[in-house]
Nucleic acid binder design. Structure first.
Lengths: 151, 151
DNA sequence: CTCTCTGCAAATCGTTTGCAGGGTT
DNA sequence: AACCCTGCAAACGATTTGCAGAGAG
């Protein structure tokens, strides 16, 4: 959170990365879309559409359905990718490839930076000929969660 | 499909594995539950709740809500695992650990038997201390799908 | 016999959609 | 000016839930 590693804060760079991609595909830079991207660029982790809407609302009003439409567009353009956490669809900026761990118990999500797992993506590419990996999700139980009681 | 590798067909063994687990947790072996397990035991791949209901109906009537309740129970007991494919929740028997590839374009799912990816689970366990992996999902684009056109 | 489980039907709620006006290029 | 995008409100559809009766142990 020191935010002085570069002249441009990280979230600004992520935001403009997404913006460039969107504009490059011929889509307009509107206020609602900018609000959504701003939220996603600042989020460290994945957010539900509802959470995106709530946070975006703090900076200006916009309609939930517009959030859904924006997110659907961004997903199609591969600006965001989705992840289901605790039964809810969540969205996160797809600006750098990474794997996620998702705890089945507490629903906590951890992003694993590249290299954290050796070269997992490379392993996949090497073994699955023709398959282009876009994301890796590891479900399980995180260290701090108690094992599920057999009810 | 030769189905004579053992005296007990595979689906029977899978079914009774699940049954044992369910009974062991103190739940009753009812006809609807048996129907659902029968479907899952025979399925090679993941099915939506709706598909489970349709197939189960072929062997006897049961209510959709009962299917949902059964699947929720099985998930809680870790008898089944869920996977979101093309925006729909799908269910599969969790009798042996394996990874899945999910194609973002055609929604096709491929189960990777253990060992297919080297020891992916072992790699995860080694690098994520304390995290107990229960499943690995690799999203991406399969060899037969065209790359998404930038719309 | 007791307590769980099921069927039924209504309620829920995240998400989608049609349409007319507004904003971006 | 042309066309894309948004707000609004209604529609949608998968999943959940309350309740009374049926069935498993």
């Amino acid at each position: 959170m020191s935010s002085r590693e570069s002249s441009r804060p990280v979230h600004v760079r992520r935001h403009s990365w997404a913006l460039t991609r969107m504009r490059g595909a011929g889509h307009r830079n509107t206020r609602p879309r900018a609000l959504v991207l701003g939220v996603l660029a600042r989020a460290d982790g994945h957010l539900t559409a509802e959470a995106v809407h709530q946070r975006a609302t703090a900076s200006g009003s916009l309609n939930p359905s517009t959030v859904y439409r924006a997110l659907a567009l961004f997903e199609r353009l591969q600006i965001v990718h989705t992840l289901v956490i605790g039964g809810r669809v969540t969205y996160g900026l797809a600006d750098h490839p990474h794997a996620h761990t998702v705890c089945d118990t507490c629903a906590r999500v951890t992003a694993l930076p590249e290299g954290e797992l050796g070269d997992l993506a490379g392993l996949v590419r090497r073994n699955l000929v023709g398959f282009v990996p876009a994301g890796i999700i590891i479900r399980g139980r995180c260290a701090t969660c108690p094992p599920p009681r057999h009810a």
